[in-house]
Amino acid sequence: MREARTVALLLAVSLLGGACAGSRGAAVPLVHQSEAVGAPMPEALLVALHFSGSTPAFWDEHVQSLDIPVRTLLPQGPRPRRDGFTWFQADHEAKTWEGKAEDVERMAARLAELIREVRAAHPELRRVVVTGFSYGGDLAWMLAIRHPELVDAAVPMGTRLLGDPAGELPASLRVWVLQGEQDAIIPVQHTRERVAELKGRGVPIDLRTYPDLGHDVSPALLEDWRTFLRQALQGPVD
C-alpha cells in the first residue's frame, strides 16, 4: 500500500538558464523527479529510465506494484519525441555500434551525477538499483558497468548491451536482462550470445527471455521484474 509520499524533487531549467548553458557548451540539466514511496526515509533507491517516446510517468504503476519502501529517481530524456521524450539525438540509430555506445556512455555519466546528488541529499540510502526499457535499458546497463561504485544491481529490459566494463566489476553487483524472444529490434540470439560472452569474462549477468513477446513488456516479464527488484532493493549490501 502506498503511504504518503514526500514532495517530489523537480529540477526545471528556465529558457534563460538553458540559453546560458548552451552558450557555454554545457549540457542543460536533466529534468527529474525523486520521491519516497511507502516510508518517509527508504534505504533503497530505484532509478528507472523510460523508453524513447515515453515519460517518467510510465513507471508510476509499476513502482506502486512493488509494494515496498523505496525512493525513486525518475529522470526524463532531454529531447522531445512523439508524445514524450528520448535520450539521444536523431542520428543515434544511424551510428555504428561504437558510436551508439559512446552516446549511451555520455548520457549514463549525466545520470550518474543525478544519482550522486540524490545520495548526497539522502544519506540514509544504502543501495541503488537501476532499471529501464529499450534506450532506458541501454542506459541502465551502462550505469552498471561504467559506474559500479554507484549501482548494486541492474534490471535492463530490451537492451543492446552496448559497451564493456572499463575494469573488474565488484562481486556483489548483479545484472538481470529481460527480453522478448520475438523482439524485432534486438534479435534475441544476439542477446544470448552477448550475455554468454560477458559471463565468460566474469561479468555477473543473467538472461531471461519470453517466447511470445516482442520489443515490449508483458505480465510475465513484469512479474519477474518485480521479483528481481524486490530482492535487490531489500537485500543486504555485501
Rank of each mutant, 00 (worst) to 15 (best):
R194K: 14
R194Y: 01
R194E: 08
R194Q: 12
V195Y: 01
A196D: 12
E197L: 15
E197Q: 14
E197I: 04
L198F: 09
L198Q: 13
L198E: 09
K199N: 14
K199V: 13
K199F: 04
K199Q: 15
G200P: 06
G200I: 02
G200C: 03
R201T: 07
R201V: 03
R201I: 06
G202H: 10
G202S: 14
G202C: 10
G202P: 09
G202V: 06
G202T: 08
G202K: 07
G202F: 03
V203T: 02
V203Y: 05
P204G: 08
I205S: 08
I205Y: 11
I205L: 15
I205H: 10
I205E: 13
I205A: 15
D206L: 07
D206S: 15
L207Q: 04
L207M: 06
R208S: 15
R208M: 08
R208C: 09
R208L: 11
T209C: 15
T209W: 09
T209I: 13
T209M: 15
T209E: 14
Y210G: 05
Y210S: 07
Y210P: 01
P211Q: 02
P211L: 01
P211W: 03
P211Y: 05
P211V: 04
D212G: 11
D212I: 00
L213G: 04
L213Y: 05
L213R: 09
G214F: 00
G214W: 05
G214H: 00
G214E: 01
G214Y: 02
H215M: 04
H215P: 08
H215I: 02
H215N: 08
D216A: 06
D216Q: 05
D216C: 03
D216E: 09
D216P: 01
V217R: 13
V217H: 12
V217Q: 10
V217D: 11
V217P: 06
V217A: 14
V217F: 09
V217G: 14
S218K: 00
S218F: 01
P219S: 00
P219V: 00
P219T: 03
P219D: 01
A220T: 13
A220D: 14
A220R: 12
A220F: 00
A220L: 12
L221W: 02
L221H: 10
L221A: 11
L221Q: 12
L222E: 13
L222G: 10
E223K: 12
E223D: 12
E223I: 08
E223W: 05
D224L: 05
D224H: 08
D224C: 08
D224K: 12
W225A: 02
W225N: 03
R226S: 04
T227A: 14
F228T: 13
F228S: 11
F228D: 12
